[in-house]
Design a protein around this nucleic acid. Sequence first.
DNA 1: TCACCTATGATATATTGTATCGCCGTTCCA
DNA 2: TGGAACGGCGATACAATATATCATAGGTGA
Lengths: 154, 154
Amino acid sequence: MARHDHQLHEGESLKSAARERLTQQGEQWTGMRAAVFDALANFEKPASAYDIAEAVSRTEGRRVAANSVYRILDLFVGANLARRVESANAYVANQHPECLHDCIFLICDSCGQAVHIDDDALSASIRKAAASAGFSAPRPVIEVRGTCGECDDD
Amino acid sequence: MARHDHQLHEGESLKSAARERLTQQGEQWTGMRAAVFDALANFEKPASAYDIAEAVSRTEGRRVAANSVYRILDLFVGANLARRVESANAYVANQHPECLHDCIFLICDSCGQAVHIDDDALSASIRKAAASAGFSAPRPVIEVRGTCGECDDD
DNA sequence: TCACCTATGATATATTGTATCGCCGTTCCA
DNA sequence: TGGAACGGCGATACAATATATCATAGGTGA
């Protein structure tokens, strides 16, 4: 299984990596964006845009509308600071925004937790299968629904 | 690449294969279910529950509510008569309801068409990766967004 | 006949996602 | 220095997707 090393971030380190990445893309790191990123990173599970809007509303002490959050999440996904979990209509912070991967999410139907693994060989074969079917600009969505080890013990 | 032969159905053949499969599961093949299946199978692209509700409303000449369609679609997905395309919030009829596969959808961002390929070796490695991360009862969701050959020519 | 079960209808509501418009602050240039 | 241009965001409305709840209708078996 092909793997490679990552610079894994958390907390302040993740935040500054995100800021750096975004500004390198020519985008601004505004207060609102920082607040959305904080909220996203502080969730321990994939969070919906509305979850995030609520969280930011609390921390900011004012009403923040979902559409603003959507705008920022779209920006984040485009800049690789966040990922969308399609089968959960939710978002997670990307722990290593500086490197590109097709990532695989394992989502527990019981507790909602999502773990994220990379397997470049696997995603390469998916891209290859897509290419041989005439698909270009492939962006794989690879998610596995199931039961995580924790919940399985119950 | 591991493949195997399918009984591929279309039109009436598909419909009767679906009916047989469903009744074998101990479920009824009602008029409403037949109408939903027809509508689903007649779309050439993944269709949302609301699309299907509209189509059935037309063919039945009366208002059919979305919740009824959802119920039936859930039943169909559970019985392998239909698949849900997560990244499109939509459904497609399964062309070979009698055999189980983890299937891979290639969805064109331009025209909305979805093609469906099976690659048992590929899905086996995804299941394996999930299992080695402690996941049980894995149900892979493998979709690739991109541009299909047709749309690429433009 | 009556109790029960399944399928569906009717209705309401929750959740997720977009579109549009306007304001405000910054930049930058004539 | 005025002011056009632009980016970010708020406000609002709305569209699209999904679920919850209760009612009804029809069959089936005691």
